[in-house]
Every structure is written in C-alpha cells, then in structure tokens.
Amino acid sequence: MTTKPELLITAGSLEEVERFLKAGATAVIVGESIYGMRMPGQMTLADIELAMPIVRKYHAKLYVAVNNILHNDALKDLPAYLTAIERIGVDAVIYGDPAVLMTIRSSAPSLKLHWNAEMTSTNYATARYWQKRGSSRIVLARELNMEQVLEMKQYLPDMEVEVQVHGMTNIYHSKRHLVQHYLRHTGQEEETAKVGRDRKLFLIEQERQEEKFPVYEDENGTHIMSSDDMCILEDLKLLLDAGLDSFKIEGLFKSAAYNEEVIRVYREAIDAYAADPSGYAFRPEWMERIRLVQDPERELSFGFFYKEQMY
C-alpha cells in the first residue's frame, strides 16, 4: 500500500498556510475563535477565501474548525457562516457540537464533516455513530494508546481516521476566566488585560516542578496545555502500516519556522515509506532535526501512546 496519508497542520494566517504547504503539508486547518477551538491565529471568511487558491496550487486540502462548544448566541450567525464556507468550497468542516451537524444539514448540505470531540472521541462504535450521521472522518482523542489507535482502521475501513502525531495537546478547558480571576484575587488587576497566548503564561504544580503547563485565555475561556510535545516520529511506521488516513501536527504555540521544520521531517518520513514500505526505517537524524528546534524545556514524548492508564 503506497497511498500516502495526509500530513495536516493547523495554521493561523495566510502566510502560514503557504509556508506550511510549501514545506510539505497536504492539508491545513484554519478558523476563528468564535467557532473554532484554540486556533493558532484568526482566519476570517475573507482570509479563507484567499487561502483557497494557495491550497489548490499545492493540490492540498483546507478544513475549517467549527469545533467549539456552542452556546445559544453562537447559533444565530452559524448558518450564514457555514453557507459561506460551503460556497468558498473548503474541503471539510471540523465539528464536535451536534448543533453544527444540524445546521449543515439545513444550510450547507454539501459540506463534508470531520468529527472531533477532542478528549471524548475514544472508540470506533461512536465514530460509526457519527459516520451514520454524515461524518466522513473521526479525529482520535489523544488519550488513546498505540494499540487502540492502530486497530481503529480495522473497525473503520470506510471512514477516515485522523491521529495527532506531533505537538502539544489541550488538557483542560474551562469557560471560566481562571487566570484573570486569580490575578484579580491577588490584587494584580493591571495584569488581567494580557492573558492571551502571547503572554506565554504557564502553571507549575507543586509536586511537579519540572513541568510547565502553558495556560491562556480567549473568548472561549481558559485553556491549559500539556507540558510536553508529543512526537511519534520514531514509531511512525506503525501508524503508516496501520493505514491511518491523516497525521496531524498541532501548530499551536509554535513559530512558523518550528512548524515548517517539523513538517519537512514528517514529509521525508512519509515519502520514504511510500517509496519503499518494506525498506523503510526510522532515521535518527530526523529526530535530531526536531530536537534542534525544540524548546529544551518541553519534553518530546509519546503522549499517551505507551502509557498505562487506570480508572
């Protein structure tokens, strides 16, 4: 089998879209925070429209994130938004809240749907449930282990399966504005104005002084991120053998230069595999290249791929 899996990354601007595709990504995710969760930058409908020719030039795909947990007030403009996206001709919409499914059925029926409920997209039967309701892809939860990820395609031969291979993950999302609240509680009112991603805030838990958990706020509340970046590069072959359809790089909190380098490395690995699956072997220099750009304070880990979890 030599069909190449998609190499997917989140992008925050037109410039990033172009740079990432040039570096070897075959699909990008864009959006804006009123509908999309934790996007690395705001891409309005006008930006998305401008992105399309670039994406087509590279024979790539563009997906729009509409995966927020929606409250009533977000529903008003949702039909118009989705209709516009349909008209622009993007390749799919990523959603978690069923309201998006409902609105697409009524307002933009030709749009493809990728189901991504973050931490809660955990099994194949539920993926099939959303498939029956029109989703062509499941985005797997990052808390699954290697075995669970690898077997997904056996259960879902006719559904695309996307898995994150690189980058940070969200580990906590609250509607509350926890950073502002804390700053106010400790009498630092003047600090509350800047609590977004640019501020580079992080939390350290008492017993875990080595780990820094980035935290930031946006209009959707407070987001706490993992202290490590997952990187499955060494074991990419397992995922390639298993026939997973899309490998995602989370671009959030990273510079475009970092993301480009990560894309290039994964691109090489995927191409090497496609050229000669049986002769493919992981090359240590790939890891070295990533280490060179990696923040030394952030461990490159296997995420939950090899962790035993209890409950």
């Binding site: 501020r199 992080f202 939390l203 350290i204 990273k254 970092y258 060179l292």
Partner: peptide, 14 residues
C-alpha cells in the same frame, strides 16, 4: 499551582 510568565524572548529561536 504557581503561575508564571515565560520571559524568554523567543521560545523556538534556540
């Protein structure tokens, strides 16, 4: 938890 601000100028320009 303790809350900090990362004051390194550029997190990836190493």
């Amino acid at each position: 938890y303790d809350l900090f601000e990362d004051d390194r100028p550029d997190l990836t320009k190493l």
